[in-house]
Simulated assay, not measured.
Amino acid sequence: MRLLFIGDVVGRAGRAAIAEHVPALRRQLDLDFIVANGENAAGGLGITETIAQEFLGAGVDCITLGNHSFDQREALVFIERAPHVLRPMNYPAGTPGRGAWLYETAKGERVLVMSVMGRVFMDALDDPFAAVEKELGACPLGLACDAAILDIHAEASSEKQAMAHFSDGRVSLAIGTHTHVPTADWRILPHGTAYQTDAGMTGDYDSVIGMDKEEPIRRFTRKTPGARFEPADGPATLCGLFVETGADGLAKRVAPVRLGGGLGQAVPEGMALPIR
């Protein structure tokens, strides 16, 4: 199976990159399933139902969220009727929505997607390791699903790495999100799980993690309240990770994807730029 995970989509620039690149990526990489983290898609904070539908229309199959899941209050309502949108599954019991779902591809293959949020330097949610263990016990790779994707939305790289090794051999892909900077450690772990500490951001990199530079710099230098953060609106780079799995659902090939904007471009070996 061929999978693509797209890192945190930030604001209008990130949404434009989704609309521009996802249809061509789906076609040229012959992708079976696409996941995008959309927790910063609406003005940099949260997601709306309209934006979620735009992602689906472009070819995204599942949208994961994170600590900004409910910054747009309408998400508290629409997420209940949107199985294609996942908030972290270690939110407390009774939180609207769901944190994991089993999807079916056009070819009839079953893909489990899980969203989980770390606790180091972040809000104290329920134990993410226990949540992952419970879900994998209910839907084991190779038996109940043909591929499994775990979005680890966390601040600390150590926590992401620990979660990846905890799930190694039990998921096809364990991918970090939240810090908005693509790491250079994409690889296949010893037991067959593809991994990258952070997929990076889909947004304008001439910014401070996707936001216009002036206000973050002012806050760092003045240490006083000011204007609200606004997403940078220049040309965006789509950042993500491509994974190809074998018959056992484990990774046999992994490669970064970076298209557009100001970062160096990257596509899987054997593909040519530009993607059209």
Rank of each mutant, 00 (worst) to 15 (best):
M1K: 10
L3E: 09
L3H: 10
G7A: 08
G11E: 04
R12V: 09
G14V: 03
R15P: 05
R15G: 08
I18W: 04
E20V: 02
R26I: 07
V35Y: 09
A36G: 07
G43S: 08
G44R: 02
E49T: 00
T50A: 15
F55S: 03
L56S: 11
G59H: 14
V60G: 05
I63C: 12
L65W: 12
G66S: 13
H68Y: 11
R73N: 13
P83L: 14
M89D: 07
P92I: 06
A93K: 12
G99T: 04
A100D: 09
A100L: 08
Y103C: 06
E104P: 01
T105M: 01
A106P: 02
V113L: 01
S115I: 00
M117E: 10
R119A: 02
D123Y: 08
P128N: 12
F129R: 10
F129K: 07
F129E: 00
A138P: 01
A144I: 07
D146Y: 06
D146K: 10
I149Y: 03
L150G: 02
S158A: 13
S158Y: 00
S158M: 00
E159D: 07
F166H: 14
S167F: 00
V171R: 10
G176N: 04
H180M: 07
A184C: 08
R187H: 14
P190S: 09
H191D: 13
T193F: 04
T193I: 11
T197D: 02
A199E: 01
A199F: 00
M201D: 10
D204L: 07
E214L: 15
E214A: 15
R219K: 13
T221W: 00
P225N: 12
G226I: 15
A227T: 14
R228G: 11
R228S: 13
F229Y: 15
A232H: 08
A232P: 12
A232G: 09
T237K: 01
L238P: 02
L241H: 07
A247M: 06
L250V: 05
L250G: 05
A251N: 03
R253L: 06
R253F: 00
P256C: 07
P256N: 08
G264W: 03
A266E: 15
E269P: 11
L273Y: 06
I275A: 03
I275R: 03
R276M: 08
